[in-house]
Design a protein around this nucleic acid. Structure first.
Lengths: 140, 140
DNA sequence: TCTTGCACCTCTAGTCGCTAGAGGATGTAG
DNA sequence: CTACATCCTCTAGCGACTAGAGGTGCAAGA
């Protein structure tokens, strides 16, 4: 039940102080009560919200998706279909990103391997960049 | 040897018109000559430069890295050690990103599978977001 | 009590790599 | 000659913060 300063909240949640203020500013976090000297003072329960947001950000959800997820959490009798849809959409994004990064990785490995550590005019890195046709998979 | 308008350069290089102007503005591309009516007119050789930049951007290199790579390309007697270093650094970044995205993917799959399509209070998506400890690999 | 020094406050501006739009000039085809 | 696409410059906006200026609050040591 002890009130907590923003610095303490930051330490306990792993969200930086300016970021907490930023989340309040965009309405993702509701404004906490203030001390006599106008300093923010948080309830322990606010830490759950902060942890939720941080976790969702780590998983790459966008702020607007998190806003929706938080509304859902606040209203537990709603259908979870939209939470499910948001997570599924994120999963598809992540899968696509992994595929595309694997293609890039193959390209970069080729470039780095082919570099004879000589001068630029024999460098495979520069050569491949200049000519897309020299890529392993020109589809990226 | 024919001069080319910015729109034509955009079409041939796959870089959008405002992006070409932006690259000129930040000095990544040198300013081309102008027509009587003050319109940019490019040499065919400028298309190579544009293709190089586009390719490097597709591979995820940052603008500053590309600036360095372009300088190297302009001076082919230099050692290619720095080109090599830039490409290697990018490779390491990509590898890390793939690892981290694979961890996220596992998390998201768990969340989506566990969702019984019922109401929010039984939804695994919301539950896991609220409690990091319920993650498969809490290290992400 | 005073002072030191850290943590807090608000506000603005900057980051990256573009993208969008306003408001106007130019170039080309019919 | 008129319509219309394309070009020009300039400024502002995107997302998700981050940095810094300039000032206030608060707790602990001398």
């Amino acid at each position: 039940m002890k009130k907590i300063t923003i610095g303490e909240a930051a330490r306990q949640s792993g969200v930086k102080v300016p970021t907490i203020r930023y989340y309040e500013g965009i309405g993702l976090l509701s404004a906490p009560s203030r001390s006599e000297g106008n300093q923010r003072s948080y309830e322990p329960s606010d830490l759950n919200r902060l942890a939720f947001i941080r976790h969702a950000r780590e998983l790459g959800f966008e702020i607007e998706a998190i806003r929706t997820l938080l509304h859902l959490q606040d209203d537990p009798h709603q259908s979870c279909a939209s939470a499910d849809a948001i997570a599924k959409a994120r999963l598809i994004e992540v899968e696509q990103r992994i595929r595309s990064l694997n293609a890039l990785k193959a390209e970069l490995e080729q470039m780095v391997e082919g570099c004879g550590h000589g001068r630029v005019d024999q460098c495979r890195v520069i050569e491949v960049l200049a000519d897309h046709g020299k890529c392993v998979h020109p589809h990226h």
